[in-house]
């Protein structure tokens, strides 16, 4: 690790102010990506601003048909939260298959979506549920927020404060775990909103990061059942290919995971 200066602000305003004063600062959430990258000397921020002690970034609120998860809430706390399990159990399930216990105790929803790893779990949930990302400056729809591999709509120094999820009528998540990293080799989140809209998002599959899957949405709109997807064919073009899965395999997984997510959603 290169030398860096560590800060631990107690408010969002203080964090923003510290960011403005340093040359190449990075915000630290759960540290599940930034710290390993720094240890390998692949990143060398001048300042690390730890958001972990900011109280306003912690907690979960259920208000009517909106579930709001504050950005600094750890996966473990999300997984255990009664409101999450009541309102959108698919999110609790997604969190339970994310990483391993050590990752879940430290990692946060805000850190995950800010990093926007193309194989991360949460981006699929946000996109499929039509969530809104709240920052210290504005609200951004999930569609607008995720902009390709490791790229988001966040501006320099902008801090995610919370994610708001409309509570769906039905939702399900199925994941084929990457055998080494335990990220998604391919995973699919399916949702049926209370207004009857069908939204399906796949992660780990596309060369452009998390994506909606129109062909599956259309088939499920006609018939919300796993068998509705039997004859859907997902093209392999544009999908990731590596030592753990060919593009054709990932195309197959999009369909199979979607079928199983629908079954799980009920």
């Amino acid at each position: 690790m290169y030398q860096t200066t560590y800060h631990r602000p107690s408010s969002i305003d203080e964090a923003v102010s510290l960011f403005g004063k340093s040359s190449e600062a990075k915000f630290l959430a759960g540290g599940q990506t930034l710290l390993p990258v720094m240890k390998q000397r692949l990143a060398g921020p001048s300042d690390v601003i730890d958001l972990g002690k900011i109280k306003e970034l912690q907690g979960v609120e259920l208000s009517g048909d909106v579930l709001t998860i504050k950005a600094g809430t750890t996966y473990f706390d999300i997984m255990q939260n009664a409101d999450v399990n009541k309102a959108i159990p698919a999110i609790a399930y997604l969190t339970s298959v994310l990483g391993d216990p050590a990752v879940r105790y430290r990692g946060t929803i805000g850190g995950s979506i800010a990093n926007n790893d193309p194989a991360a779990d949460y981006p699929a949930a946000l996109l499929a549920l039509g969530a809104t990302v709240k920052t210290n400056k504005r609200s951004i729809s999930a569609e607008d927020f995720f902009q390709g591999l490791f790229t988001t709509a966040l501006e320099d120094g902008e801090i995610i404060t919370a994610v708001s999820f409309p509570v769906p009528a039905k939702a399900g998540y199925e994941k084929m775990r990457h055998p080494a990293s335990r990220f998604a080799l391919t995973a699919v989140f399916v949702a049926q909103t209370k207004s009857g809209e069908i939204r399906v998002a796949a992660t780990g599959a596309s060369q452009s990061g998390v994506m909606r899957v129109g062909a599956i949405e259309a088939a499920l709109k006609a018939n919300w059942s796993p068998s509705a997807l039997d004859n859907v064919s997902i093209p392999a073009s544009g999908l990731l290919a590596d030592i753990h899965g060919t593009a054709e395999y990932r195309a197959n997984l999009i369909k199979v995971m979607a079928q199983r997510a629908v079954a799980a959603a009920g």
């Binding site: 084929m176 055998p179 080799l185 753990h244 899965g245 060919t246 054709e248 395999y249 197959n252």
Partner: peptide, 8 residues
């Protein structure tokens, strides 16, 4: 025998 290889 990874899942990808077995599936293929």
């Amino acid at each position: 025998a990874t899942p990808d290889r077995v599936w293929r």
